Computed example of a mutant assay.
Amino acid sequence: MKKRLGAVLLAVAAVFTAVPVASASGHAELTNIRTGKHENFERIVLDLNGLPGNSLSRETGEVSNCGSGNPVPVGGNEILETMFFGAASYDENFNPTYPGPRNFVPQGLTNVKGVAITCDFEATLGIAVGYDDANSWHKVFTLTNPDRVVIDIYSY
């Protein structure tokens, strides 16, 4: 029994030795954030070189930085915050891949009042989109060729 337990512990130790606990490689890299106005919706496009593994979205009244916990100001009465897992604004050597602003007011949009990066830590990228119309709907999806994440905020 002791030999079997020792062999199992040795195998588990070998696995944890070979696999790094946190790896910055293999994540999608943010390269640009674009916005646009359409007839019934306004669009935020995150240009990436790869796609995030997963995402979660929530509607909230305020957002904070995932690292510091400090509030992140975002214009608008409502905020949609989406966390993208397996994405960052830097490459595997921690060189920035996104040169743009981390918090800005998009030009030419009427409902969307602000876009902010709320998290960029350990390949988790958080994006907050502030908007005015409380009756807005939202849709978050990916497109390929080229790779990008799209956030649409609908208002009628």
Results as ranks from 00 to 15, higher is better:
P96K: 11
Q107F: 06
Y98N: 05
A88T: 12
A116S: 09
N103L: 13
E92H: 11
P106E: 07
V112C: 01
A88C: 07
P106W: 05
V115E: 01
P96A: 13
F94M: 13
L109Y: 04
V105W: 00
K113G: 00
R102K: 14
V115W: 01
E92C: 08
G114E: 05
M83S: 06
S89A: 14
V115L: 05
G100H: 04
A116Y: 02
V115F: 02
P101Q: 15
F84W: 07
F104T: 03
N93Q: 15
P106Q: 08
G114W: 05
M83V: 06
V115N: 02
T110H: 09
N103S: 15
G114F: 07
F85H: 10
V112Y: 00
T110Q: 11
Y90T: 14
D91Y: 05
K113H: 00
D91Q: 08
P101C: 07
E92S: 15
P96F: 10
L109R: 03
S89R: 06
A116I: 07
N93R: 15
A87M: 08
K113R: 09
G114R: 01
Q107L: 13
A116M: 05
E92V: 12
A88K: 09
F94Q: 07
G86S: 07
G108F: 02
F104G: 01
T110C: 00
F104W: 04
F104E: 02
V115M: 02
T110A: 11
P96D: 09
N95C: 04
N93C: 09
L109W: 05
P101A: 15
Q107M: 11
F104R: 00
V112L: 01
R102Y: 13
A87K: 03
D91F: 08
Y98P: 03
P101V: 09
P96G: 06
Y90E: 13
V115A: 02
N111L: 03
R102L: 15
P99I: 11
G108Y: 02
A116E: 03
P106N: 09
P101M: 14
M83G: 05
E92R: 14
V112E: 01
F94W: 10
V115G: 03
Y98R: 04
V112R: 01
N111I: 06
F104S: 01
F84L: 15
